[in-house]
Amino acid sequence: MNDLKILKQGAEAKLYICKYLGKSTLIKERFQKRYRHPDLDKSITKERIRNEARSIVRCKTADVKTPALYLVDFQRRRIYMQHFEHSITVKDYIIQHATKNAEITQNLDEICKMIGITVRKLHENNIIHGDLTTSNMLLVPKNLNNETTEEKCLEKERFDLVMIDFGLSFIDSSTEDKGVDLYVLERALISTHNDYPDLFSKILDAYKNHSKNNIKEILSKFEEVRARGRKRTMVG
């Protein structure tokens, strides 16, 4: 547990890998942000750690795959969770692997469908993710063994979609928050994957088809949030 190897610095945390109880573990440490007031920093950090842990647990009942939660250490501002050694973010997958190649395009369709269904499951359980971007979704190969490489699994549609980064998540049953969640996702896709303009509509189709419950209300809220964005006059 002492030899921590830094994996990367994310959007708000430093990520280390280690062995914890014999398992490959990822430590997400929300280190002190010195740019903000210490009181604000403390309360934000505590809230984010709590949100992340709570939502990971709740995802179990929602049948949404997340890293398993091992330990929460508020004192050291850390969450210990399962580390997927063989994983790639959806963002990197799209950028690195996606070409005009037909098989890959099919794969992308499959990924969009999985994203749509997964987000729908979250919302059906009133989990608002709060930061739906392709950086916060992992593709993890199923039944990885010695013969098959990561690449092979990703090609053959044998992968799971794992949702991560629940720091900005919260529990809410309102349609407004679900609409905003979808809006955040749409905007992230438009800006990040501008070479694939139809990703979001495919995701939204799967989102709609997975369950009809409240769907009209959610979609009209989504449209409303979107329209607000477009109408905003920008002066100065």
């Binding site: 604000l40 934000i44 709060g130 930061d131 739906l132 971007t133 900005l168 905003v180 955040v184 905007r187 992230a188």
Partner: peptide, 8 residues
Amino acid sequence: PYCVKGMD
């Protein structure tokens, strides 16, 4: 109040 939604 502190209100951040993803990158918004």
